[in-house]
Nucleic acid binder design. Structure first.
Lengths: 216, 216
DNA sequence: ATGTAAATAGGTACAAATACCTATATTTAG
DNA sequence: CTAAATATAGGTATTTGTACCTATTTACAT
């Protein structure tokens, strides 16, 4: 039995590289490739695959949004996220979307093979560095008093605002684009910064890029 | 005769993926890998290789600075830059440093093989999209009047300032770190923005990240 | 149904960024 | 040697961002 894999990454070289690694396994086969979020969603609509490997940073539709749609199309679709960074807020969101695997790009290539095997067997697979602090967060949340919620998660609206800010729009422009008042846009922005413990626009932009909320 | 290749990229998965692609060629061999700019420079100091493939976006020492040092160690060292984006200013700088190849990550994987073969034979290799506008720039510069220089290139000092700004430092902090007055830091920043025709901090940060002047 | 989170909107004050100026010493290139 | 480019530093005015407040409406969950 062959494990059928779909690869989504905006860089063809990364895709072919990963393809080469996967093809070294006798029981795995890359059946389709996508270079942006929309493409991989279209693939998920038309055909079935055992595993979708989705890079988090992609144009048009980012990896998380694409994965969300892939899972909506069929909740049994198994998605492994490829990501550059190990941010809590992001992983939390990924897991809550129903993503089964989360592999860091700076881990060894055979981790992706491990991830494919694990997820194929309906297990979760997280890169060791991530699973460590997912467990830690779980432990922390056990001993947590109500009202001192540690885990950061942005609301959808906040994510919208953040994306626009990170794309280089001023608060005034964000307000116009979202058809809200400047004050509301500022309020959202302030909430985001408080949640993330960020105090500068520069760090906000870096955060959004790191988290794949927008692409360079 | 085997072409010995050194791979430098901060993402192990990309490295192993590329390694897999290269190893499919009978006459090529990856003899060393590096995960940051400093490592690949150290490799260049200790051993010789036919080709250095250097990702532009790397921590500690970025790909261009690393390449510059690799070429200084031995001017016959052949470097191929791997880059996500096709920016003129950057490519101009790469070529002026003596880099022989410039491959975009969104091109096909066999381009890197082509690039290795070309550069090994002392030819230049640029991804088609780049070579197109390098030629265009050459044509443009022919018909150019003195004083209307089109090609943008930042000075070393400007690049230093830009890196600090993009890392999230305020102008005041930049001034302190570089031991210059706030006014000088602002002057550099203004010059950068004028050269690049950028008017917002957000775009400045995005530019720096895109160009690999700093990493997220 | 009642409290909680989220989205909305406003006020005020200060910090930082941006856009214009000028000017001078030093380095680099022709 | 001379001109151009670079790095340095200052002035001033406007815009934007950041950090504090308060307050109302809507939706959601216990």
């Amino acid at each position: 039995m062959t494990i059928e894999v779909v690869l989504a990454d905006d860089h063809a070289i990364v895709r072919q590289g990963l393809g080469a690694v996967i093809s070294q396994e006798q029981d795995m086969k890359v059946i389709a490739e996508a270079s942006n979020g929309k493409e991989v969603v279209d693939i998920a609509k038309k055909s079935s695959a055992d595993i979708f490997i989705v890079d988090i940073t992609m144009p048009i539709l980012n990896g998380l949004e694409a994965s969300s749609q892939i899972i909506q199309i069929n909740p049994r679709n198994k998605v492994i996220i490829l990501s550059m960074h190990d941010n809590r807020a992001f992983i939390e969101r990924a897991l809550s979307l129903g993503i089964k695997g989360y592999v860091l790009k700076d881990s060894a290539a055979d981790e992706i093979i491990q991830a494919i095997r694990s997820v194929y067997k309906n297990e979760y697979f997280l890169s060791p560095r991530i699973s460590t602090f997912v467990i830690q967060d779980y432990i922390d949340s056990r001993g947590q008093k109500i009202g001192e919620k540690k885990i950061v998660s942005l609301t959808d609206r906040e994510r919208e605002v953040l994306q626009l800010v990170a794309e280089g729009h001023t608060n005034k422009e964000v307000a116009t684009q979202l058809k809200i008042s400047l004050k509301t846009a500022l309020a959202h922005r302030n909430n985001i910064m408080q949640k993330l413990n960020i105090h500068r626009q520069a760090d906000l932009i870096r955060y959004a890029l790191k988290e794949g909320i927008t692409t360079i």
